[in-house]
Nucleic acid binder design. Structure first.
Length: 127
RNA sequence: GCGGAGGGCUGGAUGGCCGCGGCGCGACUUUGCGCAGCAAGGAUCGCACCGAGGAAAGUCCGGACUCCCUGAAGAAACGGUGCCGGGUAACGCCCGGGCGGAGCAAUCCGACGGACAGCGCCACAGAGAACAGACAGCCAUGCUUGCAUGGUGAUGGUGAAACGGUGGGGUAAGGCCCACCGGGGCCUUGGCAACAGGGCUCGCAUGGCAAGCCCCACCGGGAGCAAUGCCGAAUAGGGACCGCGCUACGGGGGCUUCACCCCGCGGUCCGGGUUGGCAGCUGGAACGUGUCGGCAACGGCACGUCGAGAGGAAUGGUCAUCCAGAGGGGUCCGCCCCUUGGACAGAAUCCGGCUUACAGGCCCUCCGCGCAU
RNA sequence: GCUGCUGUAGCUCAGAGGUAGAGCACUCCCUUGGUAAGGGAGAGGUCGAGAGUUCAAUUCUCUCCAGCAGCA
């Protein structure tokens, strides 16, 4: 807040832009690629073909198995929050990521641990 | 003080830091006209404001609003409602009253019309389960002394239920007679009505089930915002059947006419394509306060307020302090310290209800018991 | 979001207001040298849950709870 920088002249594409997945086909393709299980979520990821889309894309899945509407929304929000915190620095452009919530665990695991889990899962999926 | 009944309100608070959705303004940027600028857009940035519930839930009722069908109304069919009166846009909801039941009471509960309009069912047991009839028994008469005829329905056993109940008198026995209770009919008084009170009369014509069919009264056309309308893109410029036109128009062969072919219009179905945008989309039978009418539900009037509009779907993450709550410890009994920790649950066209889920907290009214006065 | 449908034995399904059944599967026995088939016997059920009507409810009525479909 100290120095108000002038408005950016152009929307910076590339590493910093994170888009949200919302097509069923994208989810299906990601599901058939690599997956890394974690105590509070499951990460699926795939490297897109050339020219398909730009930047990092991420999707969230919380099915009815997670719980009622309140539990599902809460899990989705926490997943969004860790993605916002971790992906700009540790995500790789050209990849699609899908985060899948788990019952109880996604909502109750301490936030810092959840964040560390995600960082470790990303490292593992990139190898 | 203890126990209980009814109703209402509330559904953690404050502040950092980082984020999300909407709308407005500004910046930046794209496109078009054109070049002062204007219009439309943007997945970017900044600022300001707003941003879940009492149930947003279940989708059980009732509407508004759209589309479809239909000449109007009515009937039939089907479905629903069901004591009476009122409230309401409407309701299966709410209020008041009646009747029945529970409770010492406050109060609570009740699908609560009709069983002489008709049909049906009532297993097992039992003599008999519904216009009665007679297994045992009892009584009388007859005599071939254990049978016949007649009377009786008080007694027995069965059953959920047995053609009123209890008591007394009389009789061979028995509503045969009487009293009370219960019931039917008629009249009458009060009440808008449900119904209640009173009088007279009838020895008593007579189970239950209508959440069985049904009768009576009243209500209801069908589908749903994924409705529906518009724009764009893309594919096909299709196929089948029916009806109409059957050459008046267009095209073809043809000099022209007739005739023939392609075909034209409408409807239904099938096949193929698109899963984009905008509208519908939130100011309303709205909410708050006051006042008037009404026992009340509710209504009238006046003033004030604007309170989410997403679209793979926004309210979050984290930290600190406080406030309830729970556990432990200390205590000068005022309290202090540590740990833990926040019910049910998330708008999706919008309203009125019902039902179901719910940690706690606060307030009001009333009843019973105990104590004191 | 809206609209339907279904819950009965381990599985697939019947069922009428009066004692819950069928087929497959399971257990035991017979048959066979042995297995399969066949025959006989047996076990297994809060009829999804809770209220109500009825003398009596799995069945009738209401309210919940699950599961499965359809609609752009």
């Amino acid at each position: 807040m100290s120095d108000v920088k002038p408005p950016p002249s152009a929307a910076s594409p590339g590493a910093l832009s994170v888009q949200t997945l919302n097509k069923r086909a994208d989810f299906l393709r990601a599901a058939s690629a690599r997956r890394v299980p974690m105590p509070a979520f499951l990460l699926q990821a795939r490297k897109r073909a050339e020219g398909e889309a730009e930047g990092i894309r991420v999707g969230y899945t919380c099915s009815k198995k997670v719980g009622n509407a309140v539990a599902r929304n809460r899990a989705k929000r926490r997943l969004r929050e860790i993605a916002r915190a971790v992906l700009p620095s540790q995500g790789v452009p050209g990849w699609d990521y899908v985060l899948i919530g788990r019952r109880e665990a996604t909502a109750t695991r301490p936030f810092t641990e959840l964040q560390d889990d995600f960082a470790r899962a990303l490292a593992k999926v990139h190898q």
